[in-house]
């Protein structure tokens, strides 16, 4: 299998300056996908650090499956349960998974989750919603609009737009 380097059609941009670690994306995702307690397809990680002036500052990072372009988990899976699906999302064929955990050890973000049945489950990128043009569940329901999904082109446009507006208003 040649080395995949196709850029994914859709990604999820996290605006860390807006994420306040309220975990709403977690329960929204769990309700949307009927995920039992235990596995968390998206999880907000809080981190305590010092800012440049030495004050204690909290930063938050919601982490789900990033659907990487060159996904190490696809290569690590012995039973080919992980494949590149529509919109470039990493798709999991649950019935092929034997629950060996290789994907978790390959994933730098710890996205693969294991429930009671010890079979892997993970964020499927809301394929159904995105193919209807809807935002992903976590993006739509995030109280501070810190998540934004879209193609890399859209996201960089969005990020640059926000940055330019902020700079412009500061001069104004």
């Amino acid at each position: 299998m040649s080395r995949e380097s196709v850029r994914p059609e859709t990604m999820l941009l996290v605006d860390q300056s807006r994420c306040v670690g309220c975990h709403a994306c977690e329960t929204a995702c769990k309700m949307e996908n009927d995920v039992p307690p235990g596995p968390r397809w998206i999880e907000v990680v809080e981190h305590e650090t010092l800012d440049t002036a030495g004050n204690v500052v909290l930063t938050f990072l919601p982490l789900n499956c990033r659907h990487c372009g060159d996904a190490p988990c696809i290569r690590a899976c012995p039973t080919l349960a992980l494949t590149r699906g529509e919109l470039g999302l990493v798709n999991l064929a649950v019935e092929r998974c034997i629950g060996c955990g290789e994907c978790l050890f390959a994933c730098p973000f710890g996205a693969p989750q294991f429930g009671e049945d010890r079979i892997m489950q993970k964020c499927h990128g809301c394929l159904e919603r995105r193919s209807q043009g809807l935002p992903t569940a976590c993006e739509q329901l995030c109280p501070t609009q810190a998540l934004k999904s879209g193609t890399p082109r859209e996201l960089s446009h969005h990020a640059r737009g926000a940055r330019a507006a902020a700079v412009a208003s500061r001069q104004g």
Binding site: H23, A24, A28, Q140, P143
Partner: peptide, 25 residues
């Protein structure tokens, strides 16, 4: 089945909080 914010409400504009979404449970 599930709960979402009312997009027409000028205050929460379609979004709720971590507690609101758990209401079906």
């Amino acid at each position: 089945l599930k709960v979402e914010g009312d997009p027409d409400h000028p205050i929460n504009r379609g979004r709720m909080c971590v507690k609101g979404y758990t209401y079906p449970q």
